[in-house]
Design a binder for these strands. Structure first.
Length: 656
DNA sequence: CTGGGGAGGGGGCCC
DNA sequence: TGGGCCCCCTCCCCA
């Protein structure tokens, strides 16, 4: 009827003035038009084409079109108006259920349920929550007609196999990185967008890999380490117009719910989708068990998840006790878990402060064995975490009453304690000596000001930090294997946050919008920087020519121009005090130690390095302010000479 | 064509 | 865990 009415003007307009001649254009209707349109839209959704909204449901991502959502659901309509990223309450709708709802929106059909699929009752509840009246009506009708609600609740499907083959027809993220197969619907020349899933959905595994660690289920390179997950369930963005995407690890291997053994708690805090589902709808436990059975989920029919989890737990415990270093990828996964647990266990600072390093633990353990300590060896040859516990619980020292003050270890006799003290590495002694030579900034305990401010020193590179967590974070940079791989491109990162941020670029998420021009950014800092363009603020001033810049990096690039002449040689001279200040600051305060030492070790490098130039003035100011010294005074006090940097002595050259 | 500035974007890393 | 900052690369525009 609408078509006829809408086309009426057209018929009138095309009718010849005389009324006769060519036949009158009658309004016609193509019955399959709406169906074809929906099919096209659904195809586009599957390919991610023109999708302008991402819906996050717990650990799963769905891409869709705002118009379609708005036309189907009053609730979603209210959301998509303001946001490109929707975060649905997974207590109300689980990822599996939402997939069915989204399918219904795009196809007008409600997928049949098979064992493990969300029940019709759950779909009804979700449809009510999302305000999809057509689906609500359909669910009610189905429930009334079939009268098999009890079976549904029990996980039994009266419908047989799924007609639309959700599992088979949903390749999801086919590729993580090079070498992986491309999606079947992708043309060879087409940019490979790993987000182009058939259902426009991505899943983030909350299981942190239990079944993923099964050989044969997933290529080893896809075995994302457990702690690498993006937590989808946390953090909301500061911008009201958007939401960040805290994700848990995106699981590239399956289009459906993340695989979780019953009762398996995600380390990231993301509970099982199906546990949530069952709890939300008071489903009996067997529903979840049926849903997540790995044999249902993965090609190759892996063993049941629960024994798998147990085996993994045993393996993990074994490795934990053995203190095995990361080796194979699976081992790395275990090592990462271990590291996570160690971090949570509030391990003490390492090396030079009352602490126990892992290798020291082993040494300590061997010492105990040698001396017949009351503490017997632990499985695998080390005491592992127990040793750490011993070291910090005086009452647990047992007969080891002679305690080494610096490291807190106990020994049964003074002779053994003396032997232990002598065994402290030369490096430590050298450092202490170095600190004592540092002169006026030392306290009587032999600690430099830098050590006081940053007492947690990396045993690998000598960098110092204010707190142990930062030190642990830093130490990951020394790991041969970066623990947080991107599940889309495979790039690995040393910090989870960096990987999360990287993922945002894959997903095209730019939560921070400029109010003035509408430009969006992936980071708040970028927006702040960008806003200076509108405000005209240029806080970065060139100390040489007075030029001002809105962005620091452009000042740095500008300084390059000042520093390096046409022949590449330096153009500027800098006062000795500046060098002295940098040396003082680097050595005593631990600020940019490596960089300052590097800069000072070679004057030419220093002069050609804008980073050093830029850092000198703030460093000098900092030093003057905090130590109550003038630059000249500090320079006079320090004088020319070798810079003691860590356990190395670096010659310093005067800029003249 | 080239150099310089402006600006977007990504990774590293400390707090 | 996310924010913030630093550093780098890159592109674009303009003189």
């Amino acid at each position: 009827m609408r078509v006829r009415r809408d086309l009426g003007w057209l018929a009138e307009a095309t009718e010849p003035p005389g009324g006769g001649g060519s036949p009158v254009l009658e309004a016609m209707e193509m019955p399959s038009h709406s169906r074809q349109l929906l099919l096209q839209l659904n195809t586009q959704r599957a390919k991610g084409f023109l999708c302008d909204v991402i819906i996050v449901v717990q650990n799963a991502l769905f891409r869709a079109h705002k118009n379609i959502l708005a036309a189907s659901s009053a609730y979603l309509k209210s959301l998509v108006v303001h946001d490109n990223l929707l975060n649905l309450d997974h207590e109300m709708v689980s990822p599996g259920v939402f997939r069915l709802v989204l399918d219904f929106i795009y196809t007008g059909r409600l997928g049949e349920c098979e064992p493990g699929e969300p029940g019709l009752g759950a779909v009804l509840a979700a449809a009510s929550y999302l305000q999809v009246p057509a689906l609500v009506a359909l669910c009610k009708k189905k429930l009334k007609r079939t009268g098999k609600y009890c079976h549904l609740r029990g996980g039994y499907s009266p419908y047989g196999k799924m007609a639309r083959g959700l599992r088979a027809a949903t390749p999801v993220i086919q590729t993580c990185y090079s070498g992986a197969p491309r999606p079947v619907d992708m043309q060879p020349g087409e940019p490979h967008n790993p987000l182009s899933t058939q259902c426009g959905e991505l899943y983030a595994s909350a299981s942190q890999g239990t079944a993923l660690h099964q050989p044969g289920l997933c290529p080893p390179e896809r075995h994302c380490s457990p702690p690498c997950g993006l937590d989808l369930s946390k953090k909301s963005p500061p911008s009201p117009s958007s939401q960040l995407l805290p994700t848990d690890r995106l699981h590239p291997g399956d289009s459906r719910e993340p695989l979780l053994p019953p009762g398996h708690d995600s380390p990231s805090g993301s509970a099982s989708l199906l546990v949530n589902h069952s709890s939300a709808y008071k489903d009996p436990p067997q529903v979840a068990e049926g849903v997540i059975h790995p044999a249902e989920r993965f090609r190759g029919s892996p063993p049941c998840a629960e024994p798998l989890a147990r085996a993994e737990g045993r393996d993990f415990l074994y490795r934990w006790m053995k203190h095995e270093p990361p080796g194979s990828y699976l081992e790395e996964c275990e090592a990462e878990k271990e590291a996570e647990r160690e971090e949570k266990a509030e391990t003490p600072p390492q090396s030079r402060y009352p602490s126990i390093e892992s290798n020291e633990l082993e040494n300590d353990n061997s010492t105990s064995e040698d001396t017949g300590s009351s503490e017997g060896p632990s499985p695998g040859g080390t005491l592992g975490p127990y040793c750490s516990h011993l070291a910090y619980e005086p009452e647990s020292l047992g007969d080891n009453l002679y305690v080494c003050i610096p490291c807190g270890k106990g020994f049964p006799s003074s002779e053994q304690l003396n032997a232990h003290v002598e065994a402290h590495t030369e490096e430590e002694l050298y450092h202490k000596a170095a600190s004592e030579q540092a002169g006026p900034f030392l306290d009587k305990g032999g600690q430099s000001l830098g050590d006081i401010i940053r007492p947690y020193r990396c045993s690998s590179c000598d960098k110092a930090y204010k707190d142990p967590a930062t030190l642990r974070q830093h130490e990951k940079t020394h790991w041969l294997t970066r623990p947080y791989p991107c599940t889309i491109c495979g790039k690995k990162f040393t910090q989870r946050g960096t990987m999360t941020r990287h993922m945002r670029s894959h997903l095209g998420l730019k939560p921070f919008a400029c109010d003035a021009c509408g430009m969006r950014f992936t980071r708040q800092y970028r927006l702040t920087e960008h806003m200076r363009i509108h405000s005209g603020e240029k806080p970065y001033e060139c100390q040489v020519c007075g030029g001002k810049f809105a962005q620091q990096r452009n000042l740095i690039s500008h300084m390059k121009m000042h520093v390096a002449g046409a022949d590449g040689k330096s153009k500027l001279d800098f006062p000795e005090s500046v060098f002295a200040m940098a040396r003082l600051t680097a050595d005593q305060l631990g600020l940019k130690q490596e960089k300052a030492a590097e800069l000072l070790s070679h004057t030419s490098h220093f002069l050609s390095d804008p980073k050093g130039l830029e850092s000198l003035y703030p460093l000098a100011r900092f030093t003057a302010e905090h130590l109550g010294l003038s630059q000249e005074k500090a320079a006079e006090m320090l004088g020319p000479g070798p810079l003691l940097h860590g356990d190395r002595t670096i010659e310093c050259y005067s800029p003249t």
